[in-house]
């Protein structure tokens, strides 16, 4: 069902671009419209990384795609302002070795909370509609530098993982010790997607380089300022911020 929602959102975004292309012909003079696609890579992570994370052992690519469009209006000779709409996924799939890492599992009416040392496999999925509003500055005819805040509305959330190959001390480091294995019945799984925030805020900065006719390349860095969980959610000890870099191509419709 979630997959359907994502597909619908992407189709909607593409439809909007096409519609935008048609509408763009009637837009006010001076306004520029760009359609863009991109691929993001990054992490949803505590910043800085806590000392409880001892190493990152694997970092797998995820379907962190971005489709969107934005409109730009000049303000003066080199300056301008742009606003856009994006459908994007900020996902993560990474393995880490941890030592003394606080974790909690909840299953029905029972929960197990404690300090874990071992392997953690963490998966994050965040499909969202993002509206960036950015100030732009053009040092030359083909290059646009841009920066500004964004707001995102999540429509598909995922946050789950597996703790394995280690041990848990229930409660605190002196608590009962339970060895954790790595098969279905001996490892610990957790899933907190229902606790994730629906709305995220952040800032982004990037560059557009219109390198061939109406086509161009872009690079952006988006830095989340709100943790992916509300402050009242204490199960995941550190606040996790989505920090993603996006490389993409754009086409100037108008």
């Amino acid at each position: 069902m979630k997959r359907n929602r994502i597909r619908t959102a992407i189709l909607l975004a593409v439809a909007l671009c096409v519609k935008g292309y048609v509408m763009a012909q009637h837009l006010p003079d001076g306004m520029q419209v760009k359609a863009r696609v991109g691929y993001s890579i990054g992490g949803t992570t505590p910043i800085p990384l806590p000392a409880t994370i001892r190493s990152i052992d694997a970092f797998r690519l995820t379907p962190s795609l971005m489709v969107g469009a934005d409109a730009w209006l000049p303000v003066g000779r080199q300056w301008g302002v742009s606003a856009g709409l994006r459908v994007e996924n900020k996902a993560m799939d990474a393995d880490a070795t941890v030592k003394g890492y606080h974790m909690e599992m909840v299953q029905g009416t029972t929960q197990l909370e404690g300090i874990f040392t071992g392997q953690v496999c963490q998966k994050v999925k965040q499909w969202m509609l993002t509206v960036p509003v950015q100030a732009t500055w053009q040092p030359g005819r083909k290059v646009t530098l841009k920066a500004g805040p964004y707001v995102s509305l999540l429509f598909s959330r995922g946050f789950n993982g597996i703790a394995s190959d280690g041990y848990l001390r229930q409660g605190d480091p002196t608590g009962p010790r339970v060895t954790i294995g790595n098969d279905k019945n001996t490892r610990a799984t957790y899933d907190f997607h229902g606790d994730m925030r629906r709305v995220q805020l952040g800032v982004g900065a990037g560059v557009d380089w219109q390198c061939w006719q109406d086509f161009g390349l872009s690079a952006d860095l988006n830095w989340g300022l709100t943790g992916i969980f509300p402050g009242s959610f204490k199960t995941v000890e550190q606040a996790l911020y989505p920090v993603y870099g996006t490389v993409g191509v754009f086409y100037r419709i108008k």
């Binding site: 890579i41 990054g42 992490g43 992570t45 800085p48 990384l49 806590p50 000392a51 409880t52 994370i53 001892r54 190493s55 990152i56 694997a58 970092f59 797998r60 690519l61 990474a94 030592k99 003394g100 300090i115 001390r169 480091p173 002196t174 010790r177």
Partner: peptide, 27 residues
């Protein structure tokens, strides 16, 4: 490209690993 991106990602994260803290267990 995927391999390079993966490598960049892990390196960026790995470079932020802090020094190991003293043990907190006492058994």
């Amino acid at each position: 490209i995927a391999a390079i991106l993966t490598l960049c990602g892990s390196m960026a994260l790995t470079s932020c690993i802090k020094d190991e803290r003293a043990n907190s267990e006492c058994d």
